[in-house]
Simulated scan of single mutants.
Amino acid sequence: MSPFFRRGSGRVTPEQAHRLVADGQAVLLDVRETQEWNAGHAPGALHLPLTRLMAGAPLPTAVRGRRVVAICRSGNRSRTAADFLAAVGVEATDVTGGMTAWARQGLPVTGVNGSGGVIA
């Protein structure tokens, strides 16, 4: 198991998350609500709001069997998501500072139509 993926306790920086996803070592799962996602998200991220995850919605097919890096706006919901996923056997971590830190580090953000996005 990678040192980044501890069952519910590991956290990564935005740069580490970007690298893990770019290298194919993990899938980025955005757990923000739909209006936040539509405003701007990391290219290639998958979307499943925390409210739906906690209500029992299945993970997107592309996530199943893969390591997951959860992300939200500031890092609070994604930490909850990573803990929840780890409790059900998924290797998961989350991004410290969330999409706010991601954008602040100059990492790409796209809107729902592929245009430049913002963090809402």
Rank of each mutant, 00 (worst) to 15 (best):
V109H: 11
E36I: 05
L59Y: 01
M54G: 05
G75T: 04
R32Q: 07
W37N: 02
G117P: 12
V112T: 11
N76Y: 11
R64P: 02
F84Y: 12
S74M: 12
V68I: 13
A81Q: 03
G98E: 04
M54C: 07
N38R: 15
W37I: 10
A120W: 11
R67M: 03
G106E: 11
T110C: 08
T110A: 14
A26H: 08
R67A: 08
G40N: 07
T61V: 00
Q25V: 00
A70Y: 10
R77E: 08
G65P: 02
D23Y: 02
P108K: 05
A45C: 04
F5I: 09
D23G: 03
V109S: 08
F5H: 08
L48P: 01
A62N: 01
V12R: 05
V31K: 00
R79W: 07
L85E: 06
V69E: 01
A81T: 11
R6D: 14
P14N: 13
A57C: 09
W37K: 10
F4W: 14
V118H: 11
S2F: 06
A103V: 04
V63H: 00
V63T: 00
G106H: 03
T93I: 12
S2D: 15
R52M: 15
D23T: 08
P14V: 07
L29H: 06
Q25K: 05
L29Y: 01
R77W: 10
R7P: 04
A70W: 15
A103Y: 04
A101I: 13
V63E: 00
G97Y: 10
R64S: 02
G24T: 04
G56C: 09
A57G: 04
Q16S: 08
S2A: 14
W37E: 06
S2Y: 08
V68C: 03
G8A: 15
A70G: 03
V118E: 14
V31T: 13
S78E: 08
A92K: 04
T51F: 09
V69N: 01
G111K: 04
P60R: 10
E15C: 12
A120H: 13
L48D: 02
R6F: 05
I71V: 06
G56L: 13
H18P: 04
V21L: 01
F5Q: 07
S9F: 10
R67T: 01
R7V: 00
I71E: 05
E33D: 15
V95Q: 02
T13S: 15
V63Q: 01
L46R: 02
V31C: 07
S9M: 11
T100P: 05
D30H: 04
D94K: 01
W37T: 10
H41V: 08
R11L: 14
A87T: 04
T96C: 09
P58T: 08
P58Q: 14
P3A: 14
P108Y: 08
W102C: 11
A39M: 12
E91K: 00
G111Q: 08
